[in-house]
Design a protein around this nucleic acid. Structure first.
Lengths: 193, 193
DNA sequence: TTATGACTTGAACAAGTGTTCAAGTAAACC
DNA sequence: GGTTTACTTGAACACTTGTTCAAGTCATAA
């Protein structure tokens, strides 16, 4: 085995994150992984099989980052720090500002059933994380007890999606931070109904 | 000329909106438009030329809808109505919940310079519309005079992006409406700095 | 030592891609 | 009436796509 699986997945993640599933051709993948088609197919079964592993690893990774937010004594500050670290990064990593899952959702119908399911499962996994964060914030009195947890979880994930698209196109880092602050303000204010 | 240009663009819009630029193959386009390759190339120069016209028409169309919001006496109510009409529609039009521009942004790098510019110009055109709405709302005292207009315009466009992705995946229309209401609440509350 | 099985190579394949082109049609203009 | 112009047709083109396969490598287990 020439390269460890984690190495390979990492390189594949970068490629899929930059180009998307469709646009990343097998020849791009072969070059990025420094592997020949036969190796890739023997190890990952297909382009989609590789993509699926990438998505699952991406979700697990994000989930882990979010779990440190949940475990923080001040979850809202930790959440802010998480947002900043995900959205403000050097130019050569700009592509990482977009969410790999959201990017994949736009090409969901071009994926087979397995790939599709991985993406959707990932979305729901992360939603659960956001819910836990809101719950923790309520427990620690960082948010009012009246906060509608489920609604706020959807909203928060939603804000994250919007922020990522905004950050992707935005060159002014301060504008991004300002947008993050707005999210934290609105999280504490009132909810409809 | 077998079909009027507006007809053709309309059909092409549906296709690109559903499948995206890349995934909509020339053979899909030929079928959707009921035209043979030569006709398409004689009239639109290339797949990207057609796409460009579609994007420009889409932007002009959205711009026009937003200008009725601007001209409304109660711009915030009109804005809410606009959101509802764009985000809550029958199942067979679900694909229209996603923003064609945002969908295109994810495949921006696969477009040539002209197509890319059309998409970016469209984004900035719509931002200007959102700014006018905020300005109008301030003028009519629907929003506090202290509202930072530029920041709010970015924020509003951003919210629209998030809402569209949310609505795309959401089956419960009430949850979408609730999310729209949250936007209108937050628009009126405080801003960072 | 031999056998197994996971992994690797690189040429090849069938199907799909966007695009071109010679030829034809028909309305508009001189 | 003749010429131009915009449009149409459908076969064909060169290239790219994801995938396969026979053959080879090499560590581990029997």
């Amino acid at each position: 085995m020439k390269y460890a699986e984690s190495e390979v997945i990492e390189k594949a993640t970068t490629l899929f994150w930059q180009k998307g599933f469709q646009a990343a051709g097998m020849r791009d993948i072969q070059q990025a992984l420094d592997m020949r088609p036969g190796s890739i197919y023997a190890r990952f079964k297909s382009k989609e099989g590789l993509f699926q592993l990438v998505v699952e690893k991406y979700v697990a990774n994000t989930q882990q980052k979010l779990s440190t937010v949940i475990d923080d004594n001040n979850p809202l500050d930790a959440l802010r720090a998480f947002f900043v670290s995900e959205l403000i990064n050097p130019e050569e990593m700009r592509f990482q500002r977009q969410c790999l899952l959201i990017k994949s959702i736009t090409e969901l119908e071009m994926l087979g059933d397995n790939g599709k399911q991985s993406v959707l499962d990932g979305m729901s996994t992360l939603r659960t994380c956001f819910k836990s964060i809101v719950e923790k914030a309520v427990q620690t009195n960082s948010l009012p007890a009246s906060t509608p947890v489920d609604k706020a979880a959807d909203w928060l994930q939603n804000q994250f999606v919007g922020l990522r698209t905004f950050a992707l196109m935005q060159t002014d880092d301060l504008a991004i931070e300002s947008m993050i602050d707005k999210v934290l303000i609105d999280l504490k204010t009132s909810w409809p109904e």
